[in-house]
Amino acid sequence: MAEFFFYGTLRHLPLLSVVLGRPVTGEAAWLPGHAVRQAMEGAFPVLVEQPGARAEGIVVRDIGLAEIARLDHYEGGFAFDTVEMTVQTTQPEMARVYRPRPGQWQAGAPWVLADWQARWGDVVTETAHDVMALHGTMPADAVLARYPQMLVRGASRLRARTDAAPTALRLAAQPGDVQVLSRRTPYARFFAVEEYDLTHRLFQGDQGKPILRAAFIACDAVTVLPYDPVRDRVLLVEQFRTGALARGDRQCWQLEAVAGRVDADETPEATARREAVEEAGLTLGDLLPVAQYYTSIGAVSEYLYSFVAPCDLPDGLAGTHGVEEEGEDIRTHVIPFDRLMELVGSGEISNAPLIITALWLQRERPRLRGALQV
């Protein structure tokens, strides 16, 4: 058994419980001559030497070898290793402390646990389930490489629990209706593929036999179609798309709405506004919800929030945009609404989010033009 001192995110007991695999409590403690600082590279803290300071934390005792291996997997993913240090509780005592490897992270402003809990606590705790599911199957450095994508997936899962849609006609699932017997991740980079051995409740009431299912893990995303109700025109983006290439489509450049992935610390609305600036140079005001939906529910986890944004689209607005560091090369088009519907009808617009949004706008356009014209 060993004693550990936690000064950073693992002071958040729900997170520590996920990492250890059991409920846990801690005793208040502090480490003299050190301070806790925000890592410049991510939403986690680092421990730095600072004479006269004290790093607040907790001591957890009686941690076994299997739990130490779980901690090493989690903290090793952030390039942290343990050292023995003297910490203070009611008296000085030795404890293991995770410290960043030299030169790995840059220390920034003071790190405050309450601020981190308010912004990141739920998302990081949810993501820890995925991190720990890879214990023994994926090296810690490989987990670190995927961690930003894993955070986005954790945030998507939290929204899935809080944004539950009605069950007026379909089966209302109850705890135990789906039982995951095992989960594997045969591929994991920017996206991931997961395989499940599972059983689920059958319509006649019995639990079904074990089946194998696979899912392509793509997180929550947003589309937003800028619409000028005075000039009756929309803004589209055009860019190269790998999905079309993979299908064998010679026309890999697609016409779409502004779109992007919802980052772990964003709302869908914030994402829509950020992407409009990045992809079209537009600052959006109101966002009108169109629909929330899965893109291909049979095997893809991606879930979209689609909006229409009434805004000003004057002549000369079209151009090229995109974030160069992300390899984006985006051209914008400002076209009349009638031209939009012609492109939907001809099949030149062939992606579901823009088709759905165009049909919504076709229905709501008279109301928007009447209400928003000036």
Rank of each mutant, 00 (worst) to 15 (best):
R189T: 11
R231K: 12
M150E: 01
Y147H: 02
T167V: 12
F240W: 15
F240Q: 12
Q149K: 11
R183M: 13
R231T: 01
L235H: 07
L198K: 04
S156V: 05
L171E: 11
Y227G: 05
L151M: 09
D228N: 03
F216D: 10
D177C: 02
A165W: 13
A192W: 09
E194R: 15
V178P: 00
A155V: 02
V222K: 05
R233P: 02
D197N: 12
A160D: 11
R201I: 11
L158D: 01
C219Y: 02
A214S: 13
V230L: 13
V234D: 01
Y196G: 06
P175R: 06
R184Q: 14
Y227M: 04
R170K: 07
R241Q: 13
L158Y: 02
Q149N: 14
Q204R: 14
L212E: 15
V178C: 07
A160H: 10
R213G: 11
V222C: 03
V178R: 09
V193F: 10
P166C: 09
L151C: 02
L198H: 00
T199E: 11
Y187C: 08
T167G: 11
L198D: 00
R213Q: 12
P186K: 04
Q149V: 08
G176P: 03
L151N: 01
V193R: 09
A188Y: 11
R153D: 13
L151T: 05
F203A: 15
R183Y: 04
D232S: 09
A221K: 03
T185R: 14
D163S: 08
Y187M: 14
P226W: 08
P229F: 01
R157T: 05
F203V: 13
A172V: 07
L225V: 02
A155F: 03
R157C: 07
A168N: 05
L151R: 02
P229I: 00
Q174Y: 06
V237P: 00
P226R: 05
T167Y: 14
L158V: 01
V234Q: 03
L151V: 05
D177T: 07
P229K: 04
Y147P: 00
A155W: 08
L171V: 13
M150I: 08
P186Y: 05
A221R: 05
R157Q: 10
G205M: 00
D197Y: 06
A172Q: 14
V224S: 01
G208K: 05
P229N: 04
V180P: 07
I217K: 05
D232T: 03
A172D: 14
V152R: 14
Y196H: 13
C219I: 06
L198W: 09
F190A: 15
R146A: 12
Q149S: 13
P175T: 08
V178N: 00
R153N: 12
R157G: 03
R146V: 04
A168L: 14
F190Y: 10
Q204G: 07
Y147V: 04
G205T: 05
Q149M: 13
A218W: 09
H200K: 06
D220M: 08
P148R: 06
P186F: 02
F216Y: 11
K209E: 15
L202F: 07
L171N: 08
D206L: 15
D177Y: 10
Q179M: 12
